[in-house]
Design a protein around this nucleic acid. Sequence first.
DNA 1: TTGCGTATGCAAAACGATTTTCGATAGCCC
DNA 2: GGGCTATCGAAAATCGTTTTGCATACGCAA
Lengths: 338, 338
Amino acid sequence: MATRRDVARLAGVSPSTVSRVLNDNGYVADDVRKRVRQAIQELNYVPNRLARSLRMQQSRQVACITPSISNSFYLEIVAGIEETALAHDYTFSLYSLTYEKREYLDVVLSGFYDGMILLAPYEMEKIVPLSELAGRLPVSLYCDRERHPDLPHVYVDLRRAMRECTEHLISLGHRRIVFMGYQFSRPAQNPRYLGYQDALEANGIPLDESLTRLFPDHQDTLTCGYQTVCDLLDRGRSFTAICATNDLIAVGAMRALVEHGLRVPDDVSLTGVDDLEIASLVTPTLSTIRIPKRQIGSVLMEQMLAQIHGDAAAPRAVEVSTTLVLRESVKSCLPSEL
Amino acid sequence: MATRRDVARLAGVSPSTVSRVLNDNGYVADDVRKRVRQAIQELNYVPNRLARSLRMQQSRQVACITPSISNSFYLEIVAGIEETALAHDYTFSLYSLTYEKREYLDVVLSGFYDGMILLAPYEMEKIVPLSELAGRLPVSLYCDRERHPDLPHVYVDLRRAMRECTEHLISLGHRRIVFMGYQFSRPAQNPRYLGYQDALEANGIPLDESLTRLFPDHQDTLTCGYQTVCDLLDRGRSFTAICATNDLIAVGAMRALVEHGLRVPDDVSLTGVDDLEIASLVTPTLSTIRIPKRQIGSVLMEQMLAQIHGDAAAPRAVEVSTTLVLRESVKSCLPSEL
DNA sequence: TTGCGTATGCAAAACGATTTTCGATAGCCC
DNA sequence: GGGCTATCGAAAATCGTTTTGCATACGCAA
């Protein structure tokens, strides 16, 4: 690889002058500038980022750690991160570290990165306290469960979103609405579940625990949705709508319903959360709460940049708003509308 | 950040000794070793990868360039890459460069990476000749269209796969089989289309061009599948099966069929390619040609490592094999089986 | 002639590590 | 005591860049 020295030699100037041209500081005559540029072109010279980073003590690179690399939800966020990063001449590396070994984090902390963006680091913080990481490197989080008031983060208000969603179903006449999803650590801290309860309470509908289906974390989403609905139906159909806490669960549920000869939405209305691509691919298309994934990524990166640049005005917490997307899977069950 | 010097000071030894401990060379007494390790722990010392990379002239980092970051097909490959990379203490960065600006590539060529893995770089090579890149950095490709005999690459034999798939449909009694997919640059070089033709020819079925639907590249996959089937049905149904060149097209097709009151597979059999997650999520589940995405990623990374380490025995081309996955969307149309 | 702004070269330090060489101590055995 | 091995420190070179200070020009105006 050509170095700055080679360029200087070819252009007949000193290395310092090449630097002056490259970094646009100091005086440099037009013809010299031209000669240097030409030499750069001729040698395909690209300044060595390693050396520059070492000297400048910043790499213009951030690490992004996601729970799962093949989860399209997080990947959309990552896409947003990449877009914004590139626009600011930043590069990013993607990790889906298995957190069993804490040592894996060393690779991230070894000077290669100016900061790290953590997506849903719930598993991770069981191994490493996030505050410890934040003490080493600028950190920016996306979290949809517990929030981290002390660390910069981006979040969505899923409690409110789920309340709106449930209330929409209620407004369509549904009274017996199933809630199904992961239980997270404690149901009482599950914002989605709380939103569901909020809606019931606000509309004077008593909470029927037999309609609540929380399954343990770390299980296959699709199977959970499928199996849970099968279980429910085995006891006789006692509901007219289902709120699933994500689209994949909803798709699994949809499959179970169809296999039991029930029609969506005619017999059962169904909603998800996330608005993955699949939500508009299934038949019927799935009503869901859209989480603006790309925007989240973009905001995360901007928050990261603000930290790196030391902007005191950088917001510690940014809320991005969700949208209730109504598609085919939801229908009124009021007789008047038939 | 703590440096090697800090560790040395705390342990009461010289920086060289710390190096000796870290890199396990030279003599070092056991108690000294212990003291040094303790100091490392205490200071949370992690050797600076920038400095090390600069000195060693290798970063143990590879760049991976994918056409689209939110395409789950490529992302599964990326997952395979990451897994293998991590297992070898390598790191990787993910790029979905917009190739309009060739300069974007400079960031990859600036010494940060020991090599680059290119996924389906068809757009890319219109801007930059791949051989030029390969001259700068070890390169490893995944390609499912034209192959690059001069560059290390991993590929699948989609011609054979599609032939098998089509022949399976033929063996089930189907004679009027639609082929639909992107046309790529030239249909005559589209391995999927060639495989389809191979199957027809081998079974003495004349090619009916009215059953071939090639749409231009760079269009929305889903819409293409949907729209194409709508067009076909507008002219009357003259087919009993559809081979789509990927799962998303197939899902779009499925939706169009259902909306026209046709049942899959009872009225029309349908197959895809890729075996994305969605293939087993839709109803009916989609028969498809499975491409071993994770394995491809793994092999790509291994091929890259072999190049970096200068293994002369490194294979220039590796074929990974596909599998025909039969699910619900395919059914015999032979009267005898009814 | 002096002084100043412009233009460039040269040299050196710094970033943090690796690697090698050269010494300086030890202790041990014969 | 000579020679060997084990153990460690000190120092230098190197990777390629940035940054700074200093020296050296030239041209032009005071």
